[in-house]
């Protein structure tokens, strides 16, 4: 954390190339961001497969956590979408776990938070947005456009309301991605700033240290909450696409 002080609190978000890979003109180097994504991938897989490997009828603590995460998303989809949401469960579950692990792994000192980059969060949000829009057209065809016409409003107001509804619809991937990105950015920056005070202040550094500890707790909550919000909004969008209004 001392190095962070030299480079400023934003240096933790820098992408550093670990293994340069070039495909013609394209730079697809393996970076610290890629490393954390791979660690998240391996971590989630191990967490689930090892936790479930004994298939115990009476689960231990680890298996309970695995089952809890599974039933959490199942319940989320059931409550927001209903029985026909079951088909999208693997996607929502993968999304939730990936974002959750990305947020949580970033809490470890000297690691990197790939969800603190707008490119990544926007790409994830765009996948959800495009996927849900395609789903809506597949399910309802042209009638999906009725989604932009608010029910119970006179035709005279349509020229006003339809652009508003379209802007509202287009704002979905922006709000989805900006929210996650901004939360991760702000939380981690704040954490780094206060952590930077600790060595400078010497003995009086206990004060910011206690603050950092409390802030870390809050950050853990936010890391979970943001993954949850990402998942629940995906569920709501799926519900809108399936059932329109």
């Amino acid at each position: 954390m001392a190095s962070a002080e030299h480079h400023g609190p934003l240096s933790q978000f820098e992408i550093k190339t670990l293994l340069p890979i070039h495909l013609g003109e394209a730079d697809i180097s393996f970076t610290n961001s890629s490393l954390m994504m791979v660690i998240a991938l391996i971590g989630i897989t191990l967490f689930l497969l090892l936790g479930a490997r004994r298939r115990a009828l009476v689960p231990g603590r680890w298996q309970s956590m695995v089952e809890l995460s599974y039933e959490f998303i199942v319940g989320l989809l059931r409550d927001t979408v209903g029985p026909d949401g079951r088909r999208y469960f693997p996607f929502v579950f993968t999304l939730f776990m990936f974002v959750l692990f990305g947020n949580m792994l970033g809490m470890i000192p000297y690691s990197f938070t790939f969800t603190s980059h707008i490119v990544v969060t926007f790409a994830l949000a765009a996948v959800v947005f495009v996927g849900v829009t395609i789903l809506g057209f597949v399910k309802h065809g042209v009638r999906f456009f009725a989604f932009f016409v608010p029910p119970g409003i006179s035709v005279a107001l349509w020229p006003l309301m339809i652009p508003i509804e379209i802007i509202s619809y287009l704002s979905r991937p922006i709000s989805l991605s900006v929210r996650l990105f901004a939360n991760m950015l702000a939380g981690h920056t704040l954490l780094k700033v206060f952590a930077g005070f600790v060595p400078v202040l010497g003995a009086a550094g206990v004060v910011p240290l206690a603050f950092v500890a409390a802030l870390s707790g809050l950050e853990l909550l936010i890391a979970f909450l943001q993954a949850y919000v990402f998942a629940i909004l995906t569920c709501l969008y799926i519900n809108d696409a399936l059932h329109l209004h």
């Binding site: 959490f72 319940g75 989320l76 409550d79 802007i167 509202s168 287009l170 704002s171 979905r172 922006i174 709000s175 900006v178 929210r179 901004a182 909450l225 943001q226 949850y228 919000v229 629940i232 909004l233």
Partner: peptide, 23 residues
């Protein structure tokens, strides 16, 4: 699951407003 929901909805409000404005 019921408990966490209210909090998560409160977290959403700011971003919803800004995002629509940006679009």
């Amino acid at each position: 699951a019921e408990r966490g929901r209210g909090l998560s909805l409160a977290v959403r409000i700011g971003a919803e407003l800004v995002a629509a404005l940006v679009v």
